[in-house]
């Protein structure tokens, strides 16, 4: 363990910066996630036409598109370490905590980047009106934090298992179920005119999910990472 918090944080940031730099050189995860989101959104939008959908359907579509897009690329940062055999170097170079939080930060940035691009497109292509902007932004942020927190650990499991393909989604979705339900509920409130209830109970569940997933992942990660 490093001595001070500042050196620990700087190590996490260094790993994050390394991942970002590597990502911008190949843009593999980035293009996978963005194009997946774009094609799914286009497919949905083309099939539905420009008609206004009820808020409940829009909320479901939004999160289903976002979940599956995220699941198409969030495992990449760990899989790449396993494929290029740099995982061992990383194991020698730094502690598990640094790796876990570095990867968590990278995945969160990747997902937030995707949302900056996907959310406006979704609103425009499906003619969506947002009535409670602050709640909408909060929900997206909390949902992303929860999504990234539980999938970072699962991504490391998939990378160590050495399997590609559908296993990441298969392992992630049952664990994400308690997140999906409140997300859809609050999002529906944001898209319905005249609903002024803040939905604090749901927001608390979302925050609790992210907190539990992040802590659980942090405690379990050493068992995955260390032989």
């Amino acid at each position: 363990m490093p001595s001070g918090t500042s050196s620990w944080a700087s190590k996490v940031l260094a790993l994050l910066a390394k991942d970002l730099r590597a990502e911008f050189r190949t843009r593999y995860a980035l293009s996978a996630v963005f194009l997946f989101a774009l094609t799914t959104l286009a497919a949905v939008s083309v099939s539905l036409g420009a008609g206004g959908l009820p808020a409940a359907y829009l909320a479901v579509l939004f999160w289903v598109i976002l979940f599956f897009s995220a699941l198409s690329g969030l495992a990449q940062s760990f899989i790449k370490e396993a494929e290029t055999k740099t995982a061992v170097t990383l194991q020698l170079a730094t502690s598990e905590d640094v790796v876990y939080f570095g990867k968590w930060g990278f995945n969160l940035l990747l997902l937030l980047g995707l949302e900056v691009f996907l959310v406006p497109l979704f609103l425009v292509l499906l003619n969506v009106e947002v009535y409670q902007w602050w709640l909408f932004v909060t929900v997206i942020f909390l949902g992303s934090a929860g999504l990234v927190s539980s999938t970072t650990l699962i991504a490391s499991v998939v990378a160590v298992a050495g399997v590609r393909g559908a296993l990441f989604s298969v392992l992630s979705l049952p664990v994400l179920l308690p997140l999906l339900v409140p997300l859809v509920q609050v999002t529906e409130k944001c898209l319905t005119p005249g609903v002024m209830t803040p939905g604090t109970a749901e927001l608390r569940i979302l925050a609790a999910y992210a907190g539990i997933a992040l802590t659980g992942g942090w405690l379990l990660f050493p068992f995955v990472w260390r032989e």
């Binding site: 539980s150 650990l153 699962i154 499991v157 160590v160 298992a161 392992l171 049952p174 664990v175 179920l177 308690p178 339900v181 409140p182 509920q185 109970a201 749901e202 569940i205 609790a208 999910y209 539990i212 997933a213 659980g216 992942g217 379990l220 068992f223 995955v224």
Partner: peptide, 24 residues
């Protein structure tokens, strides 16, 4: 190792459903 880790993660997260679902 991996299957134990997965089961434990699911074990701490899925009980949240019992708080979530009755609201639905």
């Amino acid at each position: 190792r991996l299957s134990a880790v997965y089961l434990l993660l699911a074990g701490v997260l899925v009980p949240l459903l019992f708080f979530v679902l009755p609201r639905l």
